[in-house]
Simulated assay, not measured.
Amino acid sequence: MPLTDAPPKWADYPDKEVTTIQNPNIHDAEAQQLSPQTLALAVLGWVLEDGERAERYLDLTGLDADSLRGGLNDPTVLASVFDFLANHEPDLIRAAEALAVTPEELIAARQELTS
Rank of each mutant, 00 (worst) to 15 (best):
E97M: 03
G51Y: 07
D15P: 03
L113Q: 04
G70H: 13
N73H: 05
L60F: 03
P90V: 08
S80Q: 14
P14R: 13
V81D: 06
S67C: 08
V77M: 05
N73R: 01
A108R: 11
S115F: 02
V43P: 04
L3Y: 11
L60M: 05
M1D: 05
T102M: 06
D50G: 01
K9N: 06
S35E: 05
P2F: 05
P103C: 04
A79R: 14
Q32L: 15
E17N: 06
E55H: 11
E17Y: 06
E89K: 13
L48S: 04
A109G: 07
T20L: 13
T19N: 10
S80I: 01
I107K: 13
A109Q: 12
L113A: 01
E112I: 08
E52G: 08
T76W: 03
E30Q: 15
A79D: 11
A100M: 08
D91L: 10
D83H: 09
V77P: 00
V47E: 02
A109C: 05
I107C: 01
T114A: 03
E52L: 13
A100E: 07
L106Y: 01
D15Y: 14
E104W: 09
L92R: 14
P103S: 00
T4L: 09
E17A: 09
P24I: 11
T76D: 13
S115D: 09
L113S: 07
L92Q: 04
G45E: 06
T102P: 05
R69P: 02
L78A: 08
R94H: 13
I21S: 01
R69M: 14
D50R: 09
A6N: 07
D74Q: 00
E49R: 11
L106P: 00
R56L: 11
R110K: 14
L72D: 15
D15F: 15
I26T: 11
A65V: 13
Y13I: 10
Q111M: 08
A40C: 01
I93G: 03
P75C: 04
E30A: 15
Y13D: 07
L58E: 02
A54F: 01
N23I: 03
D66K: 13
K16E: 14
L34E: 07
W10R: 15
G71H: 04
Q22T: 07
Q22P: 01
D5L: 15
T61I: 03
E112F: 07
R53E: 00
S35R: 12
E49V: 00
Q37R: 15
R110C: 00
E30T: 11
R53T: 03
D64A: 03
A86K: 12
R94G: 06
S80A: 13
D66T: 14
M1R: 13
I26Q: 11
L106R: 05
Y57D: 00
A29C: 05
E105M: 14
S67D: 14
A6Q: 15
P36H: 05
A98Q: 06
L44S: 04
